[in-house]
Design a protein around this nucleic acid. Structure first.
Lengths: 177, 177
DNA sequence: TCGATATCGCTTAGGAGATGAGCGAGTATA
DNA sequence: TATACTCGCTCATCTCCTAAGCGATATCGA
């Protein structure tokens, strides 16, 4: 292996890649455990992190069409994970928020069959944990930005193919995640 | 907020959760960019990390049925991402391996629209980067183990429902990922 | 103030992809 | 050698996503 710096970077790239794959597989397994599809779980996750969202916002964040989101919301509501109410400020909108009791069940799955954070940081100093925290936070922002870039580019290609005529499709990806 | 320790743990949990969601969304966006479905991308990822796998192993690792894997392999092969050859040691098996040239295209997508690792670790000492590396590595193992546990449990439930008669379904999840 | 345009969530038709079951071929075990 | 298992594949079926378009509401411009 070349210099320690390059070796370290490659090591990190590999580790991040493997971690990424493991995360995706785990996320899918959790969804199945909850009796949800991957998209449903994704949306529920976003809902838990944001507290309250509209359907269109959810569509923009996930890259799903509004039609797909309608299905997701219907399933999540039927399963009792989600409560919806009309937006008092905008008659077109629905405000979606997770249902606390059901959310606790989700949290229970994570507690029972999720990674043990204490074990992950065992033997680390506060400074080292902070470094991990910084890395995760930066990576989250980067990933969200990259995903939005990728989706925006895909839309441009799609728009070029269909030329003008904007469909129901999300007009532009959202950097927020 | 309570004690700094608890606060730190919760902070880490939240960061990990957000990072996880962002990862899943990014993974999906990359798949679309490559013209692949999420499962296809997942399998390709595993193939890239392991070099060569059999179909049944892929099914066990992803939790997909063998029927689904047949479709995944057919699509990946048609798209030129994958080469397959019969296992000389076992006439039933097919050995699947990624095609180098196409893999470079995938790598190009990551390079162009992937997170910049240097920026993520900017300002960190070697020791801090090592901490991140340790965390990622441990988390990867934990996630793989948890996913396999979840899937194994789901299979038990399924087996209890269908009682005996094992289907084509993956008999047990694999810890390896 | 009022018409034009956008956005919201929903619906529908159609298709892609996953499941679940079962098959023949090949391998391991008794 | 006979039996049980594993491999990858096929088929019918189902679920979920896309693409397109609709009515209702909101916003902007003249």
């Amino acid at each position: 292996m070349s210099q320690p710096v390059d070796s370290g970077r490659e090591q990190l790239a590999r580790a991040a890649r493997r971690h990424s794959t493991a995360t995706v597989l785990y996320h899918h397994a959790v969804a199945e455990r909850l009796g949800l599809g991957p998209s449903d779980h994704k949306c529920l996750d976003l809902l838990l992190q944001h507290g309250e969202l509209t359907g269109s916002r959810l569509a923009r964040m996930t890259g799903l069409t509004t039609g797909a989101v309608t299905g997701v919301v219907a399933r999540l509501e039927a399963a009792g994970f989600l409560h919806r109410r009309p937006d008092p400020a905008d008659g077109r909108r629905q405000l979606l928020r997770p249902v606390p009791e059901r959310v606790e069940e989700v949290a229970a799955v994570f507690a029972e069959d999720g990674p043990d954070l204490d074990r992950l940081t065992a033997g680390m100093t506060r400074e080292q944990v902070d470094a991990v925290l910084t890395f995760l936070s930066r990576a989250t922002d980067e990933l969200a930005a990259c995903a939005s870039r990728l989706r925006a580019r895909a839309l441009l290609v799609g728009a070029a193919r269909a030329s003008s005529r904007a469909p129901t499709h999300p007009e532009r990806a959202e950097e927020d995640a």
